[in-house]
Nucleic acid binder design. Structure first.
Length: 261
DNA sequence: GCCACCGGTGGC
DNA sequence: GCCACCGGTGGC
């Protein structure tokens, strides 16, 4: 039997292999089928099947099953509709109770769900539709960014950016270090305006009042003075403020595809 | 019973 | 018309 090669597939986690098999006979002779093999050897013959298996751990939205590559930009046609969207509901779907685990916010390019810890496995979860629709979020996830440093090609650690005047962080164990990362992340991950935490109560009891769609940063206003800051202090500080301003004016700016860290 | 392989078809 | 997806089955 001819040896068919299973090749590594860099778009998938380590250990996954891709195989292409040419049809030898029949009406479809000459066409090919693409299969994937998990590290444990399980065979997959379609994207939906792969998607069901990988769940939240890998985002296959841009994954092209035939070529095995991520195709950024044009999101691959996504027949997988969410069960709470209007189109699916019209077709008689049931609301999604959304028990899927949220994605861990890390610097890794692989998306990992948070770890579920169940102290009483026998307990039934009460359904609360209102709550079930919104995706749970990790509070204070920016703390993970602490201590991350960027370096140049020679692995020389780059000097950290100076913080713009007037920025203050919010929450336990907050530092300038994480504040900068938090703002940079917010700029990259959301197309909404970045305002910081506008609720005063967030400072007293962040666990309850924190706005999870905003970085752990006290509310701030960008002034002309910020932008007129002398050039030598830091070009990048100016860049960050211009980014904030631009974004607040035009929420539709195209966003970078990659996390900054 | 398993699975490699090709057919059939729904959705575009 | 094409093709992604998956059903069905022949050969083991």
């Amino acid at each position: 039997m001819m040896e068919r090669k299973r090749t590594d597939c860099p778009a998938l986690p380590p250990g996954w292999k891709k195989e292409e098999v040419i049809r030898k006979s029949g009406l479809s002779a000459g066409k090919s089928d693409v299969y994937y093999y998990s590290p444990s050897g399980k065979k997959f013959r379609s994207k939906p099947q792969l998607s069901r298996y990988l769940g939240n751990t890998v985002d296959l939205a841009c994954f092209d099953f035939r070529t095995g590559k991520m195709m950024p930009g044009k999101l691959q046609k996504n027949k997988q509709r969410f069960r709470h969207d209007p189109l699916s509901m019209a077709k008689g779907g049931k609301p999604d109770l959304n028990t899927a685990l949220p994605i861990r916010q890390t610097a890794s390019i692989f998306k990992q769900p948070v770890t579920k810890v169940t102290s009483h496995p026998g307990n039934k979860v009460k359904t609360d539709l209102q709550r079930a629709i919104e995706q749970p979020k990790q509070l204070f996830w920016e703390k993970r960014l602490k201590g991350l440093r960027s370096s140049d090609v020679t692995e020389q650690v780059l000097r950290t950016m100076d913080l713009p005047k007037g920025l203050q962080s919010v929450g336990p164990d907050a530092s300038d270090d994480t504040l900068l990362s938090a703002i940079a992340s917010a700029l990259h991950m959301s197309s909404a305006p970045i305002t910081g935490q506008t609720s005063v109560a967030a400072e007293k009891n962040p666990a309850i009042w924190l706005n999870t769609s905003q970085p752990l940063c006290k509310a701030f206003t960008v002034t002309d003075e910020h932008i007129r800051v002398p050039l030598f202090t830091s070009l990048r500080v100016i860049t960050i403020f211009i980014l904030i301003q631009t974004k607040n004016q035009k929420p539709d700016l195209p966003q970078p595809k990659h996390h900054p860290f």
